[in-house]
């Protein structure tokens, strides 16, 4: 039976979420992103969706007089003219900080990020959104040109080329992080020297980042 075709054609790509669920997912991604040592999968759709919502709310408010806005899902309180709802400000802050955290990580580990993206296959979810990828590439090229111009050019010929593997800054994927389990997972290989463990819902553990990274991507756990 050929399931693969069915898999790609399933409804996951077009999940219907309420605005509240979108917000929740962004919040979780934001916290995860801040606490993890390296970039996580991109949540670009969530970001785009929320930004659009914020814009709609702002437009509505600038036109309307004071009344209870019908976008209840985003927990907006009715306030008088000329003031933005608190929730929109908070959402904007979260989105901005989420995007900023990611950019900072890209700037820190530019080459590593680019390398990772290139080796990924088409099936897996990218870590960099298209815009981020462009940004990373430009940043990398820019920096490399600058360093060449300022320094490498003046060095003896044998030293003018940087060995990528040696020179790129690799994030430390073995830092320890705390995480909370969202759903039961069995047979997790946390430490290669030990036997696999079972993780039950709502437990909080500490572990190295690398072994549990896949679980994070599958949203079976979240960082705390």
């Amino acid at each position: 039976m050929d399931l693969s075709l069915d898999d790609t054609a399933n409804d996951d790509e077009y999940e219907q979420l309420t605005a509240a669920q979108v917000l929740e997912r962004l919040e979780e991604s934001w916290v995860n992103e801040r606490l993890s040592p390296y970039l996580l999968e991109t949540q670009q759709e969530v970001v785009d969706c929320l930004l659009e919502q914020c814009q709609t709310v702002e437009d509505n408010f600038s036109q309307a007089s004071s009344f209870a806005v019908g976008i209840h899902q985003l927990e907006i309180q009715a306030v008088s003219k000329n003031s933005e709802p608190r929730a929109t400000q908070r959402i904007k802050y979260m989105v901005t900080d989420y995007v900023r955290t990611r950019l900072k990580k890209i700037e820190k580990h530019t080459e590593y990020a680019l390398e990772e993206e290139l080796v990924k296959d088409d099936q897996s979810v990218p870590h960099l959104s298209p815009a981020e990828f462009v940004y990373a590439r430009e940043f990398h090229r820019n920096t490399r040109d600058h360093l060449t111009e300022m320094a490498l050019k003046h060095m003896p010929s044998a030293f003018q080329n940087l060995d990528k593997q040696k020179s790129m800054s690799v994030p430390n994927l073995n830092t320890f992080i705390f995480f909370k389990v969202k759903e039961d997972v069995n047979d997790v290989q946390v430490d290669p020297r030990e036997t696999p463990v079972d993780l039950s819902k709502d437990e909080i553990h500490i572990s190295k980042y690398l072994p549990i990274a896949p679980l994070l991507e599958q949203t079976k756990i979240k960082l705390v």
Binding site: D48, V95, R100, L103, A131, V134
Partner: peptide, 16 residues
Amino acid sequence: SLANYMLSLNGLDITQ
């Protein structure tokens, strides 16, 4: 680069 990136986010100014 930064400006282009911010454009892709509907002009959200992430430095604010």
